[in-house]
Simulated scan of single mutants.
Amino acid sequence: MSGRALSVFGNAVVFAVLAFGAWLWWRNVTSTADPPPAAVAMLSETAGRAGIDPAAGAPRVASRLPPGSLTFAASGLVVPVAGIEAPDLVDTYTQSRGGGSRIHNAIDIMASRGTPVVSASDGLVEKLYFSRGGGGITAYVRSLDGLWLHYYAHLDSYAPGLREGQRIRRGDQIGTVGISGNASPSGPHLHYAIYRMRPGERWWQGAPINPYPLLAGKTASR
């Protein structure tokens, strides 16, 4: 190949490399556009009510399970344990705990250890907390309007990448069923509770309501 031909070939290669680089730059810019201001304002307001710093960065999208493995209740909630249907649920809300010293204020959803636990609603992960003598590995998820708090306890583990401040959708995996805390090793289950939140209340506060009618579509037991 002559010197002139080599020069032309070299220029063509340089041009191709520069063009490819410019295309990559344009692709990255156009695929990372900022979300609409209205959406940012809504999330910031909700995060502020939940005591979450909205400047903490964009959350990782949580893992999702196939729709067929989830049960959608008429209330709009998802039964928070994969593979569990409404007839499988038992109303344990008013049962006594601690030797009769307190009311359960939650329902226990029995399932094999390691069964996926999912978020019953859209929300923000407000607190990931380990309670050695109580709920063990727990997660608190507040609804986007700030009015409701969903509590998941006795987990075996968290879903990979789950963190405080993360926005999750209904059906996103939170963790797995376990026996952490004061759960019996012979009966792995999810302790699931819902709390009605007043303005300014934190994750350890709120007034409990019975999740059973919302998940099972039945009247609560007395």
Rank of each mutant, 00 (worst) to 15 (best):
R27H: 00
R27E: 05
N28I: 10
N28P: 04
N28A: 12
V29H: 15
T30N: 11
T30R: 13
T30H: 13
S31Y: 11
S31I: 09
S31M: 11
S31P: 03
T32F: 14
T32G: 05
T32S: 14
A33G: 07
A33V: 01
D34E: 14
D34W: 14
P36S: 15
P36N: 13
P36H: 14
P36Q: 13
P37C: 01
A38S: 13
A38P: 05
A39Y: 02
A39T: 02
V40C: 15
V40K: 13
A41V: 02
M42E: 10
L43A: 14
L43I: 05
S44P: 01
S44N: 14
S44Q: 13
S44W: 03
A47N: 01
A47C: 00
G48L: 08
G48D: 10
G48W: 03
G48R: 00
R49K: 11
R49Q: 08
R49N: 06
A50R: 03
G51C: 09
I52L: 12
D53N: 07
D53F: 01
P54Y: 09
P54V: 00
A55F: 12
A56C: 06
A56R: 13
A56H: 11
G57Y: 02
A58T: 10
A58F: 12
A58C: 01
A58L: 06
P59Q: 03
R60W: 12
R60L: 11
R60F: 12
R60D: 11
V61D: 08
V61L: 02
A62V: 10
A62H: 07
L65W: 08
P67Q: 06
P67R: 03
G68A: 05
G68V: 05
S69A: 15
T71L: 06
T71V: 02
F72P: 15
F72I: 10
F72G: 14
F72T: 13
A73Q: 08
A73F: 00
A74E: 15
A74N: 12
G76V: 00
G76F: 04
L77K: 00
L77I: 00
V78W: 01
V79C: 08
V79R: 03
P80S: 07
P80H: 02
P80C: 00
P80D: 06
V81P: 08
A82N: 00
A82R: 05
A82D: 01
G83K: 09
G83I: 04
I84L: 09
E85H: 13
E85A: 12
A86H: 10
P87M: 01
L89N: 04
V90G: 02
V90W: 09
V90E: 09
D91R: 02
D91C: 01
D91E: 02
D91K: 06
D91Y: 12
T92K: 08
T92P: 02
Y93L: 05
Y93F: 15
Y93E: 05
T94Q: 14
T94G: 13
T94W: 15
Q95A: 10
Q95M: 09
Q95H: 11
S96Q: 08
S96W: 09
R97W: 10
R97V: 15
G98E: 11
G98M: 07
G98C: 06
G99P: 01
G100D: 09
S101L: 14
R102Q: 07
R102G: 00
I103Y: 10
H104Q: 08
N105M: 07
N105S: 05
A106F: 07
I107A: 03
D108S: 03
D108E: 07
D108N: 02
